[in-house]
């Protein structure tokens, strides 16, 4: 049959997580269709139509979908579900919000955050915050899947799919979007940043995190923290990388003054390259770091800042 990918977007821009989900979808069932639920999101539908491997874009343009509220989006997906044997969304806060609703109504299990498609019905997914990998086989019938997008390459933008407009599936009026506060930082989001620099208890204070901000600005990195730093009140909870915080897998993770507790490692050990700076050479973080520097961070970080400036960053 076919697979349906639910596009992730902000009304203007198609997010890269969609491109990666298209790659996963093509391994599950082809052809691949992309659903864009949005309001005035023509540019998003247009961008989706360019993705290689996408045969058709289905575009539901209605004010109801402006903020991708779970209830109406799930309803829309369900209205289309009959034609597909697999429905996939990136495991973003949106995908995680509406996909289980879809699965429950279809009376099928959801397969969360797949890392790999072994065969069209067999998937690898992380459990215990990535400390174990489960290989699971889905039963016959429709598959509802969310995709850990850091595990898939993005589909290229060399396609030319048709865009079909469809009507709204309506809203039951049980929930409504009120307002949102998006962080105004110029920096990328922690979960989608290519580089993350995180501080731990060794930072000693919230003030000292500004040293990391400077490096982050130079490298276009996001700033994170260990649970110890959050618990000590240095930075807010949304900085937390770890099992009970955010799971990140950037191209480069720089751990500063972080000892490397299990709970932290669970949230960052899938990063492509890990660099660690810690004055304790026995710190467990060095067991996972590609490059370790045993040094006092209060000397090393200002020095790094200077060196980066010299290198033209």
């Amino acid at each position: 049959m076919a697979s349906l990918v639910i596009a992730e977007h902000d009304g203007k821009v198609l997010k890269d997580s969609t491109n990666k989900t298209v790659t996963a979808a093509a391994q599950v069932s082809t052809p691949v269709h992309v659903l864009v639920a949005g309001s005035g999101a023509d540019a998003v539908a247009e961008a989706a139509s360019k993705l290689t491997g996408v045969e058709k874009v289905i575009y539901a343009d209605d004010a109801t979908y402006a903020k991708l509220v779970a209830e109406p989006v799930a309803k829309l997906i369900l209205s289309l579900a009959g034609k597909y044997d697999a429905i996939l969304a990136p495991a973003t806060t949106n995908g995680k919000n509406y996909m289980p609703r879809v699965a429950a109504k279809l009376d099928v299990p959801q397969i969360s955050e797949i890392l790999k498609v072994d065969s069209p019905d067999t998937f690898e997914r992380p459990i215990y915050a990535g400390n174990a990998i489960a290989t699971v086989q889905a039963p016959a019938g429709k598959k509802v899947i969310t995709v850990r997008t850091t595990a898939f390459k993005p589909a290229e933008a060399a396609g030319n799919a048709t865009v079909e407009k469809i009507a709204s599936a309506g809203d039951d009026g049980i929930s409504k979007f009120m307002h949102e506060e998006l962080s105004k930082s110029e920096r990328p989001e922690l979960t989608s940043a290519k580089i993350v620099i995180s501080g731990g208890r060794g930072m000693q204070s919230g003030e000292n995190f500004h040293m990391l901000d400077k490096i982050a600005d130079k490298l276009h990195a996001a700033v994170g923290a260990s649970r110890a730093a959050v618990d000590a009140g240095f930075v807010p909870n949304d900085y937390q990388v770890g099992q009970t915080g955010k799971v990140v897998a950037p191209e480069l993770y720089i751990a500063v003054g972080i000892s490397g507790a299990i709970q932290h490692l669970a949230g960052m050990k899938d990063s492509k390259v890990i660099a660690a700076i810690n004055k304790d050479e026995e710190a467990p973080i060095f067991q996972v770091a590609d490059f370790g520097l045993v040094a006092d961070l209060f000397k090393a970080i200002p020095e790094m800042d200077e060196e980066l400036t010299k290198l033209g960053y």
């Binding site: 299990p109 174990a132 489960a134 290989t135 699971v136 086989q137 050990k269 067991q287 045993v294 020095e303």
Partner: peptide, 30 residues
């Protein structure tokens, strides 16, 4: 409904190398 075929350890990370200075660290990262 899902059949767990197996549960395995994630690929282990090898501990890497220690560098001696910030400039060496940046050189390696480059």
């Amino acid at each position: 409904r899902l059949k767990t075929l197996k549960v395995t350890e994630p690929p282990k990370r090898q501990a890497g190398i220690k560098v001696k200075s910030v400039s060496e660290l940046l050189a390696k990262l480059k």
